[in-house]
Write a protein that binds this DNA or RNA. Structure first.
Length: 339
DNA sequence: ATTCCATGAGAAT
DNA sequence: TTCTCCTGGAATC
């Protein structure tokens, strides 16, 4: 399932390939026919992510779209892109080594399975052959005839298909898929906490908002990081890894964590999120070079400090990694390091 | 072939 | 807390 980094990558792909184009919007599956009809034939004017929420603007202007398609992928939703796609340069460079290893199909997976050799549900610029990749790397936009069948037949339960003259995006399995009016978009943004990659406020203000909110809560910091009204975009993997990196006990109430530690936590999130947006993977053991970095890219087991490592020795202190349930989600942590 | 489980989150109990 | 949404790869039978 995608955490915030995946949704930002998807938003950038819509920005690079769909914004500015008139779109045919349909619901091949049939469960979004009314909403699709409302958007069909409009021009896509904006693409933005706030936390795990994707907001695609239709008509109006980029700053004030008439209607907004709001999508939340939930635990198994995914976007599939196909057609004559270009790849947003901000998410291209560091994914090349991953994408280049894969051949065979056309298109890219916004997020979802099939991307990693370990079955991890992380996105990548998957399945692009070497010649296509070279063109994309050079910044060329492909023509439809180079890509093959276009548009492809929808595969499986496609809730929404967004089709332009050159590209297509299919959405499957979302938790939320709805058309919002401007006031509803504002209400959504208002209930979400800060996101350092969202263009809605300055970095400094975002950090202050997070710190203020966490510092006055008696809830455990492990719960606060998962609360989308405290900070938008963190999920179960980033929660566990951020707390380990901070050597912080997940059970410590927010209001007993010193402010400078909250600020360090936020700044580490800013850093990990940026790495995630650029690479498409949750690389939480950063600073790796060469063969170690390659191993981390290839195998989840080499990618995290504590996530899904219960019972294995801590990489830092050797203590057996603990697993417990916190608010219905699995929490992984090291009782030796995190005090 | 069948069951399990997941990077989420709101509703129901 | 548990259920539900409802996809798909991995694990299990």
């Amino acid at each position: 399932m995608p955490e915030g980094h995946s949704v930002h990558r998807i938003a950038r792909q819509f920005g690079a390939n769909f914004v500015g184009s008139r779109a045919a919007v349909t619901s091949p599956q049939g469960r979004f026919e009314v909403g699709a009809a409302e958007l069909d034939g409009r021009t896509i004017t904006s693409s933005e992510a706030i936390g795990k929420h994707l907001l695609l603007g239709f008509d109006g202007t980029a700053a004030a779209p008439d209607r907004v398609l709001h999508v939340h992928l939930g635990i198994y939703g995914a976007w599939d892109f196909a057609g004559a796609i270009s790849v947003d340069p901000t998410i291209l460079a560091s994914t090349l080594a991953v994408g280049a290893a894969r051949t065979g199909q056309t298109g890219m997976r916004g997020v979802g399975g099939g991307a990693g050799t370990d079955g991890e549900h992380e996105d990548s610029i998957a399945s692009i052959g070497a010649p296509r990749l070279a063109r994309l790397r050079a910044g060329e936009r492909e023509t439809a005839s180079e890509v093959g069948d276009f548009p492809p037949e929808p595969v499986g339960q496609v809730r929404v298909r967004i089709l332009t003259a050159a590209a297509v995006a299919d959405l499957r399995g979302p938790t939320v898929c709805e058309v919002l009016e401007p006031a509803q978009v504002r209400a959504l943004a208002d209930r979400l906490g800060p996101d350092p990659e969202a263009p809605t406020e300055s970095r400094r203000r975002a950090e202050d908002r997070f710190v203020a909110r966490a510092a006055r809560s008696g809830q455990a910091i492990g719960q606060l990081l998962m609360d989308q009204s405290v900070v938008a975009g963190i999920g179960n993997v980033y929660r566990a890894e951020l707390l380990f990196r901070a050597r912080m006990d997940p059970h410590r109430p927010g209001n007993v964590v010193p402010e400078d530690e909250l600020r360090r936590l936020w700044r580490d999130w800013v850093k990990l999120l940026r790495i995630g947006v650029e690479t498409g993977q949750m690389l939480t053991i950063d600073g790796l070079r060469g063969a170690r970095r390659a191993a981390a890219l290839a195998n989840r087991a080499d990618r995290h400090w504590v996530y899904k490592r219960e019972g294995q020795p801590c990489r830092r202190c050797g203590t057996s990694i603990a697993l417990e349930t916190m608010q219905g989600r699995k929490l992984y942590w090291c009782s030796g390091c995190q005090l």
